[in-house]
Design a protein around this nucleic acid. Sequence first.
RNA 1: GGCCUCGUCGCCAAGUGGUAAGGCAACGGUCUGCAACACCGUCAUCACCAGUUCAAAUCUGGUCGAGGCCUCCA
Length: 493
Amino acid sequence: MALRLYNTMAGRKQEFVPLKPGAVSMYVCGVTVYDHCHIGHARANIVFDIVYRYLKFAGYAVTYVRNYTDVDDKIINRANERGISSKELSEEYIRAFNEDMDALGLQKPTHQPKATDYIPQIVDLVSRLIERGLAYESGGDVYFAVDKFPGYLKLSKRNMDDMLAGARIAPGEQKQNPMDFALWKTAKPGEPSWSSPWGEGRPGWHIECSAMSMDLLGPSFDIHGGGKDLVFPHHENEIAQSEGTTGKPFVKYWMHNGFVNINQEKMSKSLGNFFTIREILEKYDPEVVRFFIITAHYRSPIDFSDQNLDEAKVGLSRFYELLKAADELLARMPVPSRIPCPTIDDSEREIYDRIELLEERFIEAMDDDFNAALAIGHLFEAVRGLNRLIAERRFEQCPLSLAVLADGVKKLRRLGDVLGLFGSEPAAWLEKQKSAGLQGGELTAETIEALIAERKQARADRNFTRSDEIRDELDAKGVILLDSREGTTWKLK
RNA sequence: GGCCUCGUCGCCAAGUGGUAAGGCAACGGUCUGCAACACCGUCAUCACCAGUUCAAAUCUGGUCGAGGCCUCCA
């Protein structure tokens, strides 16, 4: 089955056929760098990170461009507030963005252009739009004339008359149509500016993305992504600018990810309910955040809450618990070269089949508009099957099960990697979750280890009263003791 | 007001015509000195109403409810 994806332009899923066979060109709107990124940015970037990874996994040569918009009103205002230059401010937040994305385990895009490095291309686009009669100069500003572009609003499927009813004209703007938008703005004193045929000025919002995407990917490319909120006006305007200039179709597939809500409310600065990525990473493991985000379909809204994050952590731990157990077992019992198995019962047969078909099912899910939530469901089923092989301990009689276990773990890691998951060393990852949970509590790992040692002696003396006291005492403080053949370990509730 | 989504078990979440994946929680078992992990088992007719169809969570119409965009926004 071929990859199908939901194209906002078509309003439905379509089969993915790249412009050039075997290659994919993809542009995703990055961030305006004037503040730290929040969980919404994390979602958008993780979603497209997975698109990027999956396309590569599917065998495409992918060129992925994600930009920085480093010239904008908000940047100028924020820089003025802080008494630093726009350049200093944007560089600071570009660094912060990269730190955040690295922490979240995102792969680097092929290109990460900055708007200010593309001023000549922007000026060129604006000039061509004027030549073609799609833009006009007005008092040093240049506006795009939306009435001159017949396809305007085709992406957001709005109606011009309805839009006009609610539109407002900002004071001082001399537009032919209130819907016209700025391509170039005259610089006010003290603002960053570049010279142009229309005087000193700077680009408007939207034009930078047309310039960067077409410069790096050509006039037409395959996938353009971003948050749902960018459909109008940002992407609508990009289409107008780009197709207005080249006369060619700009983008073949438009992909938009859904929003993040906070405790069932829209996340917004006015409500004060947004979290930056760094705040979240103080509390949650980056892989837990990623796991949480991809257990929902990328177009659905997702609710960010402590409960949901905690559940994600439990779910992800389940994978790492299996990987740990399997790694340990396989280290003790290497898979023999001859793997006979005199009798295979039905339940074993079923597990073998499940592992055999795992990759196929995973691909089937991901091919259906990147249905990672379904793909993860298949991975969970594989976990249950493999845990069962381990629990049944029939490896001596049936080495084939050992081979299946080894194969299953390998597949889990390979497919997990497509989602950016399971890349950590299991024991270390699980250990990290434990120590992270202790922070701020009264217990330390040393105290716990000391109590475990005392309990070990008590159990050796068959003093189960004291043994149970220790278990209960730690339990009351949220620590659970786990006895096994190899000794006692602990974990947090 | 215009446009657009969505409403599936206590919670999260797949499923867009063929008879409801998966995870968490809960309950009953196996294992355990007791536990935990793990495993086995139990646990939904899909907001409501009407219609189309041999067949609907899936299509159509309506009702109720939630949310988003229309202004900067991932």
